[in-house]
Design a protein around this nucleic acid. Sequence first.
DNA 1: CTTTAATTGACAACATACTGTCAATTCGAC
DNA 2: GTCGAATTGACAGTATGTTGTCAATTAAAG
Lengths: 160, 160
Amino acid sequence: MSRAEPITALILETFRLNGALLSAGDRLVGHLGLTSARWQVLGAIAYAPQALAIAHIARNMGLTRQAVRRLVNEMVADGLLRLAANPHHRRARLVLMTKAGRAAYAAAMALQTPWAEALGQDLPPAEIDAARRVLLAMRVHLSPDNDTTPGDPDALDEHA
Amino acid sequence: MSRAEPITALILETFRLNGALLSAGDRLVGHLGLTSARWQVLGAIAYAPQALAIAHIARNMGLTRQAVRRLVNEMVADGLLRLAANPHHRRARLVLMTKAGRAAYAAAMALQTPWAEALGQDLPPAEIDAARRVLLAMRVHLSPDNDTTPGDPDALDEHA
DNA sequence: CTTTAATTGACAACATACTGTCAATTCGAC
DNA sequence: GTCGAATTGACAGTATGTTGTCAATTAAAG
């Protein structure tokens, strides 16, 4: 009856998949001392070509500085990250992985690859990519100021 | 490279769309005294053919009893909901909308329809539905015990 | 150089949702 | 009817993320 109906159904399914993904991610890396949120922080650091400060990581992840600050503080206390002086900014220290942090991230990635392959084994890559583009179009419509590949610090167009 | 890559990209996009939808929903219904979470609770109550208890609402929404309990308590205090005796269960009172709750929900729905239509105006309904099915397939893969129409109170295939 | 604006980290408070635990209640097996 | 399992609401604690506010620092304007 309304054009709103398919969109509404997709929105509700997005909420449910989000929750299912987070809990599945927590189960996947929980035994490594990680959570989904901590894993994402490590990913942002690993992906960046150079060391970043907290505010920079937050921008790359699409979160607030405060959320990242709390995670970083806890991960420093747990020995996964360390803070180093920033030659360009006395206040904004650089966030670096410790040896334990790198090991945990490598272990998480080793688990993630087969997990993701199993998750998509029954779905053609073309359909997966088509779904991703639909979600991207919706998100861009919601916040037009965002670029098309947020979370990606440098490769703005092609995350190749 | 790997079959994991398109799935991983879709997962990250799901996280971002989820956040964008929640903040957009909060902005849409904030002036009605609602939030995205409260709106969803009202929707679960409005959608059900009969009055539900807290645990039942939680199952329909895919949340925990505790999360719904807190929301319901606050919404009762705010006059949006009220609790009524359950003839079939002394402990599990039924959650009902007050007049104010029904008015707020109606106002939210009146806003949601044109908002959703605008959100999907550039996307063919077939693509939207295809994306929804991909997300559904992923979620079912993550939690095989879930039925295919969560949020539907009666179409349960009796996972008892 | 001085003033102003923007960025950054920190603290507080709040919103949402989770797990764990408990007693009360209902339901099923016997 | 009785007993044990399951359900339900409640409480406590934790995790994640938000907004608001502040001082320190950096960058820009004059």
